[in-house]
Design a binder for these strands. Sequence first.
DNA 1: ACACTCACG
DNA 2: ACGTACGTGAGTGTA
Length: 618
Amino acid sequence: MKVYNYEIAGDPVTVRVPETLADLDEFLMWVAAAEKAGPIALDTETSGLDVYSTGYRLRTVQFGDRRVGWVLHWERGGRFQEVALEVLRRCPRFLIHNAPFDWAVIDRHASVSLESLAPRTTDTRILAALVDPRQPQEGGRGTALKPLSAWYLDPRAPDTQEDLTAIFHDYGLTKAQGFARIPLNDPTYNLYAGLDVILTARLEPALRRELDMLEVRPRLVQYEHEIARICAVMQRTGMILDVPYTKALAARLADEEQHYASVALAYGVENINATRQVADALIMMGEDLRERTKTGAFKVDKAVLLRLADLDRDWKRLGQREPNPLADAIIRSKRAGKWRTAYAETFLSVLDAEGRVHPFINSLQARTGRMSITRPALQTLPSSDQMIRRCLLAEPGHVMVSTDFQAIEMRVLAALADVKKMKEGFVNGGADFDIHMYTARLIKGEGATQKDRKLFKGAGFGKVYGGGVKTLARQTGATEEEISRAVAAYDREYPEIKRASARWQRQARETGLVHVSVTGRRLPLDRERMYAIVNYACQSVARDCLGQSLIDLEANGLLPYLRLPIHDEVVASVPEREAPEIAREIARCMTFDLYGVPIVADSDIGKRSWGSLYGADE
DNA sequence: ACACTCACG
DNA sequence: ACGTACGTGAGTGTA
C-alpha cells in the first residue's frame, strides 16, 4: 500500500493506494465501516474528456470520506476492478463533484448504469450552484472543486488540476496527453486523485449547511438531481451523425472558405479573421467605417460587412449601393470557415465507434439556471439554413420532432409580474395566439400592421432584456422616435412590469442583492445592472418550465425519444408511424398552467434529418 | 489572457 | 436622477 499524508484545514488526511490483494481487503473493511457512517465520496481519473471515443480509458476510481481517500487502479484490471465494481454496485449513497461526467464514464467503462448510480448520488456541484450560480468572472466563486474547497474548507487547498498540468510538463506531456499517459504510480497523480474525494466529502456538509441557512428548498435540490440524470440519459443516447454527408460538407465548406479567401487576398487581406487587416483594406478602398468597438478599433463585424456588400440580414441584395467585393468575400469566407471548424469538423472529431455524437449536456450552467451543451455546441447550430443540422439524424425508421414553448419568456413575465392585459390575452387567445400582434392591436387598434407587430415585439424584448431605446432601434431597424413611443405605449398597457421590476429590485436590496425566484432559485444580481432582474426572473423560471417538462416527459415514458433540451425546445427522435401521436404526447407534457397563465407548446414533425425541420426542402 | 466575432434561445 | 439588451460556447488573432 502506498500511503500519502496531507493536511486540509489543519486536519491530517491520508491517501491510500492499494497495491496488493491484502490492501484491497483492507479497503473493503474501510468501506464496510464508512458506508454505515454516511455517503462515500466518489471520483474517477480517466484518459481525458472524450468519454465516447474509441481507446478511451478509465484509469482510477477513488472512494473516500473526510479523512481518507482510496485510489483504486482500475487500469490494472482483475481484482482491482472487481473490488471497485462491488463498491460501485453496493454502496447506498455517493457524493460526486460534477456527477454527470463520472456517471457517463462509469456507465460506459465500468458497466454500472447511470440508472443505478444517479439515484444514489448527491452532486456537490449542484449544491454549489444552488448556493450561488455565478462563474468567477461574474463575481461568484464558481462551481469547480478548487475554488469551492478554497472558500469552504482551506484557502490553501491544492489546485489539483493546475498542479497536475505542471507534473505533466515534467514528463514532457501536454495537459491533454497527461491524463492519458502519466504513469499510474506517479505519487502526485495519486495524491491528487485521492485528495479530490476527500475535498468532495468535506464540501458536502459545508454546502448543506449553507443551503439550510439560506433556506433553499430540499425539493429544489432533488429536482435538479432528477434533471441532471435525465440530461445524462440524453447525452448517453446521443445522435446519429450522417458521416458521408458531414465529410462532404466539411470539404465543400473548406473549398468555399478557400475560394473567398483568395478573393480577399487579391485586395491585400492575407488573413480574413484579422479585423485590423480587413479594416485597413476597406479604408484603402474608400469605405467610410464609422462604428468602433469598445476599445476604439474599427468595427468590421457581419452587420458592417453585409451593409458594405449591399446585403440584408438574409443575404439578399438591397440595391442600395454598389456591393463591395472584399466585404462580400470576407463574410462568405468567414462563415464557411466557422461552419466547417465549429460544426462539421467538430461533429466528426467527437464521433463514437457507432457513428453517434454525445454532446455534454450541462443541466445547470448559466447564472439563471439555464442549461448549456458543449462538444459540440448543439444549442447553437445555424437555423437560417438546414446545411449544418442536416448532419444529425433520427434513428433508422424515426423522424425528428421539435417541440417548443410558445413565447415562453413573455408568458412567464405575464405570470410573475401579474400583467393583467397580457394574462387576458394568453388566457383567451387560443392556440395560435400571437402576443406581439395582440399588443400591437391593443395600442394601434385593429388596423395594426406587421410592421407594428415587429415594433412591439422589439419593445417586449426590451422589457424582458432591459434594453434601451438605442439598442432596440438598432435591432429592429425602427427609428428611436418610433421605439420610444412604442415603449411608452407598452408601459401604459402593461404597467405592472415596471412596478414588478422596482419591487423585485427593492426586495433584492434588502436581501443582499439576491433575487429568489418562485421556484426557490437564488439569482445574485450585479449592483450596477439591477435592471437585469426582470430578465433573470423570466429566464430562470422559463428554464424551470423546461426542467419540469423533462421530468413529466420521463414520467410519461418519453425519455427514450428525447435527444436535446434547447432552452424553450425539446428535440426528439420518434418512430415515423407513431410520430403524430408521440409528438402530441410531448406537447401535452409541456403544457400546463403557471399562476393563471397557460404555458403552451407546439410540435413540429420533420423527416429523418434535423435539418428537415429548417429551410425548404428535404 | 483578452478582444473580437459569430452561432443559438 | 438616469439609463443600461439577457444568457450561453467556440474559433481566431494579438500581445
